[in-house]
Simulated assay, not measured.
Amino acid sequence: MDTEKSTEQKILEAAKKVFVAKGMAGARMQDIADEAGINKALLHYYFRSKEKLFEVIFTETVGRFIPRVNEIFSSDMIWSEKIETFASEYIDKVLENPFLPLFVMNEMHKQPEEFLKKMWGGEKPQIETFLRQVKKAVEDKEIRPIHPAHLIMNVMSLCIFPFIGKPMLQMIASINDQQFFQLMEERKVMVPQFIIQSLKL
């Protein structure tokens, strides 16, 4: 049993690397078998197809976080707390799964409609409550006017880009992996502070 779990985990880790490098469409079962150091027959014993393997990885990573995103933005928290909570939990999730942003971006560009349908279960993110809160904050002159799309882009880009641009950032700033991850820990606080401060009148 332990051996089976070890082999299955080895396959999942190998598949993550191959999917990041080649995308869902470009990845082959042979590539994954080679990366895992096993033969293709053994790979098929554990996972019948590339699609099945993708679904398992997707469920273990993105699939677990999506319900939490909906929970955060539809909760009773005030709008600023939602930004703080999302930024902190998103960065935590990516620190645990560094392949995630590039993996999602690759698939969105290769098969946007199909991938987004899998990602959100055919529904849009539940952010209506958050958007109403932001609109009311603007109307009450609590914050300066801002298009909701700009606010969403600001939050997403400040959280996601450092992971996408990690090699370039490390070269420019002359930082190693440990220093990079420490900076990302700091960004869990800095990102929402920066966004919220930028909205103040």
Rank of each mutant, 00 (worst) to 15 (best):
M108D: 06
F99I: 08
F163P: 00
Q179S: 13
E55K: 05
G23Y: 00
E96Y: 02
Y46P: 00
L131F: 10
I72Q: 01
E51S: 09
P98N: 08
K136D: 04
F65M: 03
H150P: 01
F163L: 05
K166H: 11
E4F: 08
A33K: 01
I196K: 14
T61Y: 06
A137W: 07
E107C: 04
G26C: 14
E113K: 04
E139W: 07
F19T: 00
S74V: 06
M184A: 12
R187T: 06
F130M: 02
P145C: 06
N176S: 14
H150L: 10
L53E: 01
A87M: 06
G165T: 07
I72N: 01
K117N: 14
K118S: 04
Q197P: 03
H150S: 06
L169A: 06
F86V: 03
A137L: 01
M24F: 13
T85E: 14
H109Q: 13
K141V: 14
I195V: 04
E8Q: 14
E186T: 11
K124D: 07
D2A: 07
Q197T: 06
D92W: 02
N176F: 09
E51K: 12
L158K: 11
D31Q: 12
L42Y: 11
K188S: 07
R187K: 08
A33N: 04
I143S: 06
F180T: 04
G37H: 04
G23S: 01
D34N: 09
F115Q: 02
E114M: 13
E35I: 00
E89T: 06
G23E: 00
E139K: 14
I32P: 00
V56Y: 09
S49H: 08
E71F: 07
P145W: 08
Q9F: 09
S49A: 02
E8V: 08
Q30A: 14
V191G: 01
M108S: 11
S80T: 13
I164L: 11
E142F: 12
E8W: 13
H147S: 14
I91T: 02
A173M: 15
P98A: 11
P148M: 15
M119D: 08
N154E: 13
E139M: 09
K52E: 11
D92E: 12
L151P: 02
R28W: 14
P67K: 08
V104I: 08
W120P: 03
D140F: 07
